[in-house]
C-alpha cells in the first residue's frame, strides 16, 4: 500500500519515508477530426517536494501556537532602524543585518484593519480554501508593510477592524493557519480548529 511521502531531518540531512511520486501511465492524444491520428501524449506526474522555511520556520511554527511574529531591524547603524516587517523578513533589506524577531500578536489584536480586499469566485488547482475566498490586506499600527491573508467570517470593508485567528488544532504549518474575523466575533463562531 502506498504512503504519502514524509520527511524529517537528522544530522542536517533529509530522511524520507513513503512515496514521493506516483506512477500513472501516459495516454495518447488523438485528432477526432482527422482519422484519430496521433498528435501527442499525456504526461501525468504527481510528486512531493521537500521545502525548507529556513529562518522563517519560527513564524509558521508560531501560528500553530496562536502567535503572530514579525521582524524588526535593530541595527543602530542602519538608516531604517526600527522598521517592522510582516511578512517576516529574516534580514533587513537596507543593511542586510539579521532582524530581531518580535511578537506582533497584541499589536494585531489592537490595531489590525483592512487596507484593501477582494472576493474571489475562482481559484487555481490545489486551492484548499472555501470559495468565495475573501482576500484581505491588513495594516497594523507601527508596521511598514501590509500583510495579505483571508477573512473567514463576515464581509470585508475598507478600514474594518479585524482580529487574527490561528489554526491551533490540526495546523497545516502554512500561511493558511492564519486567518481573520471581524472584531467582536465570538469564539464559538470560529472555523473548526481555529482559536483567537
Amino acid at each position: 500500500m502506498s504512503m504519502f511521502g514524509q520527511v524529517f531531518v537528522k544530522d542536517n540531512k533529509y530522511k524520507i519515508k513513503g512515496d514521493f511520486h506516483h506512477l500513472t501511465p501516459n495516454t495518447p492524444i488523438r485528432d477526432a477530426d482527422d482519422g484519430w491520428k496521433l498528435l501527442g501524449v499525456t504526461n501525468p506526474r504527481d510528486m512531493t517536494y521537500m521545502h525548507s522555511y529556513g529562518g522563517e520556520a519560527i513564524f509558521f511554527e508560531s501560528l500553530s501556537q496562536g502567535k503572530l511574529l514579525a521582524t524588526r531591524c535593530d541595527n543602530s547603524g542602519c538608516g531604517t532602524r526600527g522598521t517592522t516587517y510582516i511578512p517576516f523578513r529574516i534580514h533587513c533589506p537596507d543593511c542586510l543585518g539579521k532582524n530581531s524577531i518580535i511578537d506582533l500578536t497584541a499589536v494585531a489584536r489592537k490595531s489590525a484593519r483592512i487596507h484593501t480586499f477582494m472576493v474571489c469566485e475562482r481559484s487555481g488547482a490545489f486551492n484548499l480554501l472555501d470559495k468565495p475566498i475573501k482576500f484581505i490586506n491588513i495594516e497594523f499600527d507601527g508596521v511598514a508593510t501590509i500583510l495579505m491573508s483571508y477573512l473567514s467570517l463576515g464581509e470585508p470593508k475598507f478600514g474594518m477592524r479585524v482580529l487574527p485567528i490561528f489554526k491551533t488544532s490540526g495546523p497545516t504549518f502554512t500561511i493558511l493557519d492564519l486567518s481573520w474575523v471581524p472584531e467582536g466575533t465570538p469564539q464559538e463562531q470560529l472555523p473548526e480548529g481555529f482559536t483567537f
Binding site: 521545502h51 522555511y53 522563517e56 509558521f60 511578512p87 487596507h115 484593501t116 480586499f117 477582494m118 474571489c120 475562482r122 481559484s123 487555481g124 488547482a125 490545489f126 486551492n127 484548499l128 480554501l129 475566498i133 482576500f135 490586506n137 495579505m148 491573508s149 483571508y150 502554512t174 500561511i175 493558511l176
Partner: peptide
C-alpha cells in the same frame, strides 16, 4: 511568493483584484 501568497487561492487574478478594489 510560495509561502506567503500562492496558497491563498492559487489565482493571480486575486492578487490584482485587491489592487483594483483599492
Amino acid at each position: 511568493d510560495k509561502d506567503w501568497e500562492s496558497p491563498l487561492g492559487h489565482i493571480y487574478t486575486g492578487y490584482y483584484a485587491v489592487m483594483a478594489q483599492r
